[in-house]
Nucleic acid binder design. Sequence first.
DNA 1: CCCGATCGTTACGGGTCCGTATCATTATCG
DNA 2: CGATAATGATACGGACCCGTAACGATCGGG
Lengths: 117, 117
Amino acid sequence: MPLEIRPSQALRLWRQVHLDLVRDGEPDLSARQTAILLTVYLELPPHTVRGLAKQLGVTKPVITRALDTLGKLGLLTRKRDEEDRRNVVIQRTVAGALAVERLGDLVTEHAKEIGAG
Amino acid sequence: MPLEIRPSQALRLWRQVHLDLVRDGEPDLSARQTAILLTVYLELPPHTVRGLAKQLGVTKPVITRALDTLGKLGLLTRKRDEEDRRNVVIQRTVAGALAVERLGDLVTEHAKEIGAG
DNA sequence: CCCGATCGTTACGGGTCCGTATCATTATCG
DNA sequence: CGATAATGATACGGACCCGTAACGATCGGG
């Protein structure tokens, strides 16, 4: 069941959501941070630094730094993997789940407003 | 004619597009830069620094800096308004129009892939 | 055991962006 | 004219992120 949307509608949707994200005053997430956050919350665990780096096509320090920032914002946490202590497992948080849910609602609401463009 | 989309679908769409934007290697635009770019290309001219600042709810230096960057990327240009030389008019470019069109296609393609989530 | 491989982190130099304050230029109006 | 207002740009100190390279900790095979 594909989602029906035309490029002109997609662009209006993209603009409206970004306008809201800018206007709400909270710190904007970069594209990389957004991709990481949504991957952790939408894909099945476990999530590791290396795995995220591979999925995004970026280097590991990029992931480490993004996790520092997202962790500081309370949107996710890190935990040592006790089975293989070299690994770090990225875990979800309540605040992160709420933020992701808000984003989903935001996109959905703006989609509703967009008529035949 | 509202666009039908559920939050879970919206989130998967948001993730997929951001993954592509990260992976394509080109410099990521910030949320502010994206909002400015799409406003210039979707809303009727003329566009001024002050007008954009008001629409985004940010200060004028934020717009000036974003225009510096977007201009350096060739996505838009500035021109003095000859009728009131205090104003600067932001204009579209061919490269910018192509980039916006690509974004619209990107969102549309991923929307097609998203089934009943 | 020990050596190599793997994991995530840190260090470094450079670039970009932030918010606030200030600036030069131009227009407006008494 | 001259004073005031408005516009966009610039200066500044601080924060964040980048890519590359190196690092310490941990695992695993000979």
